[in-house]
Design a protein around this nucleic acid. Structure first.
Length: 544
DNA sequence: TATTTCACG
DNA sequence: ACGTACGTGAAATAG
C-alpha cells in the first residue's frame, strides 16, 4: 500500500464568496517514476493549473432550463409509447413472444426436478416482450423472422444494433417486417435519451436565484491520450448531431442576464496531425486550400469522376459534382486513419474486396510520409518503451518494447501500436486545457473575474458563461481566440498554417449558434446578436 | 460481473 | 493460426 502524500501547498480559491480548496495528490511511490519519466514539467506547468481551471469549471456547472428538460422528456416518452404500443398490438411480435414463453417453460421444466411449467405459470406469464433485450431481438430477427446475420459483436454473436437493423430494412421481406424494424430503430433512438440523458439532466440543481445548473466531473490524468474524461454525469457526450440532439441541446439555456458561449478549434486533430507528420498531402489542405474530403475522394474514386483535374478549384468542385462519392470517402478514411485494413473497410463500410483493397492502396499512397512517421514512432517505441505525446507526455508501450529485435510483431503489440499512434495525435487536445488556463489567468486579472466563468470543456472546445454585455463579449472573443491560437510547441510551428478557432454565442439555447468572427468590433457583435434576435422572433411567428 | 449498445470526440 | 478502427462513460440485460 503506497503512502499518499501532498506534494504541493493547496491553493485557496474564492468562489461565490466561499473558500474552495484545490489540492492534488501524488502517490509518493510514484513520484520518482514521474521524475525519471521527465513528467515533472507537464505536471507542474500544465496539470496543476488545469486542476484549478477544472475545479472552477465544475463549480460553475452548465446552465439548464428544467422546463425544457420536461418538454423533451414528454416528447421522447410519447415516441417510446408509440413503439411499445405497436409491439403490443403486432400479431407477429406477440406470436414470437408466445414461442419464447413456450421455450422458457420447456427450459424451466427441464431444469426443475419434478415440476412441469407451462405458459400459464405466473413466473412465465409475467414475462413481456422486451425490445431492449438483445437476446430477445436476436431470437426475433434471426431465428423467428429468418434474416441473415450481417454483423457480429465483439463476442462473435449476431449483432442487433441500430446500424444492423438499418441495413436489414433494405432487405425487409414484407411491409410488416419493415414496420417492425422502423419501430425498433425509433425505440433505440429514444431509449438512450430516456435512460441516460434525461435522468442526468433532471439532477440539475436549483440555485438561490431560481436558475439551475448541471454539475459533472472533469477527470484529468485518467486517459491514455492526455485527453480529459467526464463522468457523473458525463458532460462530454451530450447529443450533438444524432437524431434528437436538437431537443436535448435546447435544454441548455443561458440564465437571465447572462450569455452562454464557447469556442472550438478549427479541425484541431487534422491540423496538428498534418503539422507533426509534415505529410505534404495533409499540409496542402491548409497551405493550398484543398478540401480534405474532396482530395481523398479523388484519390479513392478518381476513376469515377469525369473532368476532375488536380487543381484546387477542380478538386474542390467534387463537393458539388460528386457529393455521394465524397460522402463515401469519409468512413474508410476514419477507419484507415486509426490503422484499419481493407478487412475493416469490407466489414464496416460495406465495400467489396477489390474496392476495399483499392481504397486502402490509394490512402497509403496519398499519405506515405505520415505512414513513415508512424513507422518511425513505433520503431523508437520498441527501443525506448514509450511514444511521446504533446507537451512532453508519454504513453508506455511495454508490448512493443518486448518485440525489439524480433521480426514478427504479435497482434496485441500491433494493437498497442495503433492505440499509441492515435494517442500521439489525440494528445494535442490538451491545447484546449492550456488555452483555458491562460484565459483563466487573463480573466482573473480583468474586470470580468466574477462575470466570465468556465462551464465545460469537450476535447477541442471550451464553454463559458458570461454576463450579457457587448464589451465583455468583445473582450472574451479577443482573448479566448488569442489563447487558443497559441502554437509555441516546436513541432507545431509553421510559417502559414495557424491554429485557429471561432467564438459562438449559443442563443437562445445551445441549440443555436451565433458565430462571431475573430476580432469583431463591438458594433459587429451587437449587429449579429440583433440579427439572431430577429430571426428568433420570426421563427416564433411561424411556429408559435 | 461480462456483454452489448450507444452517446461524444 | 491468430484477427483485422482510436479514445472515453453510462445503462440495461443476462446469467
Amino acid at each position: 500500500m503506497g503512502v499518499t502524500a501532498k506534494i504541493a501547498t493547496p491553493d485557496l480559491l474564492k468562489y461565490n464568496g466561499q473558500d474552495c480548496l484545490a489540492t492534488w495528490y501524488v502517490n509518493e511511490t510514484h513520484k520518482p517514476t514521474m521524475i525519471a519519466d521527465q513528467q515533472e514539467q507537464l505536471y507542474e506547468e500544465l496539470f496543476k493549473p488545469t486542476v484549478i481551471t477544472l475545479l472552477q469549471t465544475e463549480l460553475c456547472g452548465m446552465p439548464i432550463n428544467p422546463k425544457k428538460v420536461q418538454f423533451a422528456k414528454l416528447h421522447l416518452v410519447s415516441i417510446e409509447h408509440t413503439c411499445l404500443d405497436y409491439f403490443n398490438n403486432s400479431k407477429l411480435i406477440q406470436d414470437f413472444h408466445f414461442t419464447q414463453l413456450i421455450a422458457l417453460a420447456e427450459k424451466m421444466t427441464a431444469k426443475a426436478k419434478k415440476k412441469i411449467y407451462d405458459i400459464t405459470d405466473p413466473i412465465i406469464a409475467r414475462e413481456v416482450f422486451n425490445p431492449g433485450s438483445d437476446t430477445q431481438l436476436r431470437a426475433l430477427i434471426f431465428d423467428y423472422m429468418g434474416y441473415d446475420i450481417i454483423n457480429l459483436t465483439k463476442g462473435k454473436q449476431a449483432s442487433t444494433s441500430k446500424g444492423t437493423i438499418e441495413k436489414l430494412i433494405n432487405h425487409a421481406k414484407t411491409p410488416e417486417h419493415k414496420e417492425i424494424f422502423e419501430h425498433l430503430i425509433k425505440l433505440a433512438d429514444v431509449s438512450i435519451l430516456l435512460s441516460t440523458f434525461i435522468p442526468s439532466m433532471e439532477k440539475a440543481q436549483r440555485l438561490p436565484d431560481g436558475s439551475y445548473r448541471l454539475y459533472g466531473n472533469f477527470n484529468l490524468g485518467g486517459t491514455q491520450s492526455l485527453r480529459l474524461s467526464s463522468s457523473d454525469p458525463n458532460l462530454q457526450n451530450i447529443p450533438s448531431h444524432s437524431i434528437f440532439a436538437q431537443i436535448i441541446k435546447e435544454c441548455f439555456e443561458p440564465i437571465i442576464g447572462w450569455l452562454f458561449f464557447g469556442s472550438d478549434f478549427d479541425a484541431l486533430e487534422d491540423k496538428t496531425n498534418a503539422l507533426i507528420t509534415k505529410d505534404p498531402n495533409k499540409l496542402k489542405i491548409y497551405t493550398d486550400g484543398f478540401c480534405g474530403h474532396c482530395l481523398r475522394a479523388f484519390s479513392y474514386f478518381g476513376d469515377k469522376m469525369n473532368g476532375i483535374i488536380e487543381t484546387v478549384t477542380s478538386i474542390n468542385s467534387i463537393k458539388k459534382l460528386y457529393p455521394d462519392l465524397r460522402q463515401d470517402s469519409k468512413a474508410p478514411t476514419f477507419a484507415l486513419t486509426y490503422g484499419g485494413s481493407f478487412h475493416t473497410l469490407m466489414k464496416n463500410c460495406g465495400f467489396t474486396k477489390p474496392q476495399a483493397k483499392q481504397i486502402e492502396k490509394m490512402y497509403h499512397q496519398l499519405y506515405t510520409v505520415a505512414d513513415k512517421w508512424v513507422d518511425n514512432l513505433v520503431e523508437q517505441a520498441k527501443k525506448i518503451g514509450y511514444i511521446p505525446l504533446a507537451f512532453g507526455g508519454r504513453i508506455r508501450t511495454p508490448l512493443l518494447a518486448k518485440t525489439v529485435g524480433k521480426v514478427k510483431v504479435p497482434f496485441a503489440a500491433q494493437k498497442e501500436a495503433r492505440s499509441a499512434g492515435n494517442a500521439a495525435t489525440q494528445s494535442y487536445c490538451f491545447l484546449t486545457q492550456r488555452a483555458m488556463n491562460e484565459f483563466r489567468e487573463r480573466v482573473w486579472a480583468s474586470p470580468y473575474i466574477y462575470t466570465i466563468l468556465p462551464a465545460a470543456t469537450i476535447h477541442d472546445a471550451a464553454y463559458y458563461m458570461g454576463q450579457d454585455n457587448a464589451d465583455l463579449i468583445k473582450w472574451a472573443n479577443d482573448n479566448l481566440i488569442d489563447c487558443m491560437a497559441w502554437q509555441q510547441l516546436p513541432e507545431l510551428m509553421h510559417p502559414t498554417i495557424k491554429i485557429s478557432s471561432g467564438l459562438e454565442i449559443y442563443w437562445p439555447s445551445w441549440g443555436n449558434k451565433v458565430k462571431i468572427p475573430n476580432n469583431a468590433s463591438k458594433q459587429q457583435i451587437k449587429a449579429l446578436c440583433l440579427k439572431a434576435e430577429q430571426e428568433e422572433k420570426a421563427k416564433q411567428l411561424i411556429t408559435p
